[in-house]
């Protein structure tokens, strides 16, 4: 089976499941959902899966779950951090834009990494340099300015897990 057909089938099943979860199991819902899912998957289905998988699917899902909990914990920390800054009478900030490096290659992996950086303590992704694999990060409480230290401080905690999930 070719990769495009496989991708279309996956898109069809996912679209159908999400639609049924949203609406419930009536006859009209099933028929209209089937038609629309078929249309969407034939027109735009080939973009979901673009490469053959290298690692076992279970392995990737386990790391995805691990990543989810790690991310949730970082996110709670981020919110407490912002609450502390906002409630402090002097607003103790030391902002700046720093550069970090990444070793991820896939677009999806870099997107998830940058989104996670935005939602974790004190950091906000400003821009990505795709050729040099560098990410510009606005940091509300700058602790280091060198590219190596910043990479260790900001990106490293997610990158090792994301590499297992995506690559």
């Amino acid at each position: 089976m070719s990769l495009a057909v496989k991708s279309k089938i996956v898109v069809f099943v996912l679209a159908m499941l999400v639609w049924l979860a949203l609406t419930g199991l009536g006859r009209q819902e099933i028929i209209s959902g089937f038609v629309v899912a078929l249309l969407v998957s034939t027109m735009a289905g080939q973009f979901l899966i673009t490469t053959h998988k290298q690692k076992h699917l279970l392995h990737r899902w386990l790391y995805a779950v691990l990543y989810f909990f790690k991310f949730l914990w970082e996110m709670i920390k981020a919110n407490v951090h912002v609450a502390y800054i906002v409630l402090h009478p002097l607003v103790p900030i030391k902002p700046g834009i720093v550069k970090i490096k990444t070793n991820l290659h896939k677009d999806a992996a870099i997107t998830v990494l940058t989104n996670s950086i935005t939602l974790t303590p004190g950091t906000l992704t400003v821009d990505v340099n795709e050729e040099k694999k560098e990410i510009y990060v606005h940091w509300i409480d700058v602790k280091a300015t060198g590219i190596e230290e910043c990479t260790k401080e900001i990106g490293a905690r997610f990158e090792s897990v994301l590499r297992e999930v995506f690559e």
Binding site: I76, A78, V82, V86, I93, P95, T123, H138
Partner: peptide
């Protein structure tokens, strides 16, 4: 945070993190 922080970047920090969560 939107009210208290000084510039647009710091305000975005507060706005995205807290409002998302």
């Amino acid at each position: 945070g939107l009210v208290r922080l000084p510039d647009v970047y710091n305000r975005l920090q507060a706005a995205t993190k807290c409002v998302t969560f």
